[in-house]
C-alpha cells in the first residue's frame, strides 16, 4: 500500500464511519419507535346485561379499556367493538350469547348489521356473514366471499352478579391480524 492508497482508504473509512453513526440509529429509530405492545393475557370485560340483548338481534357493544396511542395514554376508551348475538328465545332458560369481533378479517373495516337483519355485512368490499360469523356468498350476485376467514369469535361467558341477580355478558377481547386465513393474535 502506498501513501496515496492509504489516504484514500482512511478518507473513505472515516466517511463511512460517520455515515454509520447517523444511519444505524436512524434505522433503529424506526424499528424501535413502535409503542409498547400490550403485555400479558387479555382480560374479560363486562359488557352488558343478558336481558338487555334482544334474542336474534345482533348488538354492537364497545369494549372499554386502557388505550395507548403513542405518547398518549387514556383510560375508559373504546379499545374495540364486539357484536353480541343472543341466540336463545326470551322465554328459554338456557341463554347463549355469541361474541364476534367487529373487525373484518379481510381489511380490518368495521362489520355492520343492516337494521332488522340477522346477518353481517362488511361495507368495504361487501362481504356477507351469517349470524354465526360464517362467510356467505354475496346475496345479490352469488359471488363467492373473498374474505380469508370467518368473523373472529371471541371467548364469551355469562356471569351472575349475586348482589343484583343480573346475568352479565363478559368477553375476552382480542385483536387478530387481518388478511390471513388463520387467526394470529395482534392488530
Amino acid at each position: 500500500m502506498n501513501r496515496r492508497e492509504l489516504l484514500e482508504w482512511v478518507s473513505s473509512g472515516l466517511a463511512t464511519a460517520v455515515a454509520t453513526v447517523v444511519g444505524l440509529p436512524g434505522v433503529g429509530y424506526f424499528l424501535g419507535g413502535a409503542p409498547r405492545e400490550s403485555s400479558g393475557e387479555s382480560q374479560f370485560s363486562r359488557l352488558i346485561k343478558v336481558k338487555d340483548l334482544v334474542p336474534g338481534r345482533p348488538m354492537m357493544v364497545p369494549v372499554m379499556g386502557q388505550k395507548v396511542d403513542a405518547w398518549i395514554q387514556s383510560d375508559q376508551q373504546a379499545i374495540g367493538r364486539v357484536w353480541l348475538v343472543r341466540e336463545s328465545q326470551s322465554g328459554s332458560t338456557d341463554q347463549t350469547v355469541r361474541a364476534l369481533s367487529s373487525v373484518c378479517p379481510h381489511m380490518g373495516c368495521q362489520v355492520q348489521a343492516p337494521s332488522g337483519g340477522k346477518s353481517f355485512v362488511c361495507p368495504c368490499h361487501r362481504a356477507s356473514f351469517g349470524a354465526d360469523g360464517q362467510r356467505l356468498p354475496d346475496p345479490k350476485t352469488g359471488e363467492r366471499n373473498h374474505v380469508p376467514r370467518d368473523l373472529d369469535e371471541l371467548e364469551c361467558r355469562l356471569v351472575r352478579d349475586d348482589e343484583t341477580g343480573d346475568n352479565w355478558v363478559e368477553v375476552r377481547y382480542e385483536k387478530f391480524k387481518t388478511g390471513l386465513d388463520h387467526r394470529v393474535v395482534g392488530a
Binding site: A34, P35, D69, A70, M107, G108, C109, K177, T178, G179
Partner: peptide
C-alpha cells in the same frame, strides 16, 4: 385499508405496515 393492503404483502408487509402506522393501529404516530 391501504395500510392493511400493504400489510397483507408476504414477508415485508407487516413490517412496512408497522412503519407506516407507527405501531399496530392507526393513531397519533
Amino acid at each position: 385499508v391501504e395500510g392493511n393492503i400493504l400489510g397483507s404483502t408476504p414477508v415485508f408487509g407487516p413490517f412496512l405496515r408497522r412503519l407506516l402506522f407507527g405501531g399496530e393501529e392507526i393513531g397519533s404516530l
